[in-house]
Design a protein around this nucleic acid. Structure first.
Lengths: 175, 175
DNA sequence: GACCTCCAGTTCAGTAATTGAACTGAGGCT
DNA sequence: AGCCTCAGTTCAATTACTGAACTGGAGGTC
């Protein structure tokens, strides 16, 4: 972040934003919650400059939200969410809900994604709560669906293809 | 934001971050939810460059989260939250909760602020839910308290003085 | 009426972050 | 050997942020 950070802001919100508030960081976390794990998948799906992605992933690892693992045999480098990273789900869900309600959208765009409880398929309410079960599921127990599977795909990358597919996708399950 | 925005990100989260994701914007909203309404109070409490504050307030007005009112008789210019602005409370609360749980803090710092339901004084849970009443109150029904009122004040501006005072403060009530 | 203060900004030069495109280097496949 | 993928790095041009100083209107005071 720029020069001094949110210094002197003795406040949990400011501390959270130090970690999570930089440009692109919350979208990286969104994708990580969706199940994205590979550098190139983040890069393609987000249309983010690779230098910035590299920087954000490094900081998320440093701050303990992601773990970077590199298998000795072969290429794959993967970034996986830690408990601290998975705990950002309420923030991401709150943003998604606010965006659906209040951020301007053109009718051109496809229907919004819907989040539901994996165990009972009930749609989550605005607070991420499952009204049928009376609990607020963790990210790992949430499914994501597109309500109109017939809509033409807007992006052609691997991640968008999985998310736009006919079957619901469970958060955190690898893409 | 820089050059192109999060263009092509057909996603409610990206749309929300277009409005709310710039540096300082969520802290401005936090203060607005606390009840701050005046330019100079934001500036002092946030330690934000005045040019940036000016820009952020203007954009929040343009995007419909704040209304700027200027009384004809006398000085006061005030910024008040609209319904769209008040609806960001779940995002701010989720950030506060994540920050308290996961963002590093030094023991030097004073105890975290506590949010509770104004109607029954019960502390809100991690999802902003009141376990006693079984509802999730809107920002206007939330109180904010400091658990150790004896702690020395870290800041001396007007807003910090009110928030650090012995009495709980209701969100949205003017400071 | 001149002077002072408060408020809500604006202006500006220096510094830092972001962007997009090209490049690197390791490993695998044929 | 030649080509491909993956996970980054490098670099110049653009844009944003910072901190400090400045502006201009309104109100109060001697």
């Amino acid at each position: 972040m720029l020069g001094n950070t949110y210094a002197g802001q003795d406040c949990a919100i400011a501390r959270a934003l130090e970690v999570v508030g930089e440009r692109w960081t919350l979208l990286v976390l969104r994708d990580a919650l969706y199940g994205v794990r590979r550098f190139s998948d983040f890069a393609e799906h987000l249309d983010i400059p690779r230098a910035v992605l590299s920087d954000r992933l490094r900081k998320l690892v440093t701050n303990g939200l992601l773990v970077r693992t590199t298998a000795d045999d072969g290429v794959p480098v993967t970034y996986e969410l830690t408990e601290a990273g998975r705990a950002t789900w309420p923030v991401v869900h709150a943003l998604a809900h606010w965006g659906q309600g209040w951020a301007p959208t053109s009718p051109e765009r496809s229907a919004p994604r819907v989040f539901s409880h994996a165990k009972c398929a009930t749609q989550l309410d605005q607070h991420g709560h499952c009204p049928a079960c009376g609990i607020t599921p963790d990210a790992g127990d949430v499914m994501i669906t597109k309500p109109d599977p017939g809509a033409p795909p807007r992006r052609t990358d691997r991640v968008s293809a999985v998310l736009a597919g006919p079957e619901p996708h469970r958060l955190l399950s690898p893409i």
